[in-house]
Simulated assay, not measured.
Amino acid sequence: MHARTASTSRLPITSDADLAWVRQHVRQAAAEAGFNLVQQTKLVTATSELARNTLVHGGGGHMEATPLREGVARGLRLSFVDSGPGIRDPEQAMTDGYSTGGGLGMGLSGAKRLVQEFTLESSPGHGTTVTITDWVSGVPSPRTGAP
């Protein structure tokens, strides 16, 4: 799927105050894209977990937020980037119940379940990038014919 993108926002994740700002930015961007309240809450919950991981485990980094448009569909792509120690065993890190503490206790696998698309790129010593994409659901199809 080749989505047209609008301008990307880049927000630092270097403190607890940044975590609050990142969550607020994502909620506002999701609302502007047309996500309903339940979708917004899921996206902000995933954001909270991934931003905290970026801060706590990655030593800080940034989030890139890009509004998407594919035809009439609208979405949001969020990338959480750090240059920390990386994830030694990404497969284990994606296991339900796996946690090294500090987050909401849902881990990467919980964040993945909250969104439609999830990618994890990490290698020891080279940092981690987690990218999530979610699309507004319930967009009506174009009407054809008479009512």
Rank of each mutant, 00 (worst) to 15 (best):
S99R: 04
V44G: 10
R52I: 01
S99G: 08
S99N: 05
I87N: 04
V72D: 03
I87Y: 03
R52K: 08
D89H: 09
T45Q: 08
K42H: 11
R77A: 15
G75F: 04
L50T: 12
R74H: 02
G97I: 13
F35N: 01
E70A: 15
E49W: 06
T66S: 14
F35E: 06
L76Y: 03
L78Q: 10
V81S: 09
Y98S: 00
F80V: 15
G102A: 08
L50M: 14
I87V: 12
A46I: 07
S83M: 07
L43W: 06
T66I: 12
G75M: 06
L78G: 08
A51N: 06
T45R: 13
R74N: 05
T95L: 01
E70S: 11
T45I: 02
A51Q: 07
L78M: 14
L78W: 02
N53C: 11
G86T: 07
T100M: 12
Q39P: 05
H57Y: 14
M63G: 06
V56I: 11
A93E: 00
H57S: 10
F80P: 14
M63F: 04
K42P: 02
H62E: 14
G58K: 15
D89S: 12
T66W: 00
D89F: 02
D82Q: 13
R88V: 15
Q40W: 04
L50D: 11
R88Q: 12
P90I: 00
F80L: 11
L37Y: 01
G102P: 03
A65W: 04
V72K: 03
K42R: 06
M94S: 10
D96M: 04
G86A: 02
V72N: 04
T45A: 11
R74K: 14
R88C: 09
P90T: 00
P90Q: 05
V56T: 14
G102K: 08
H57D: 06
R69H: 01
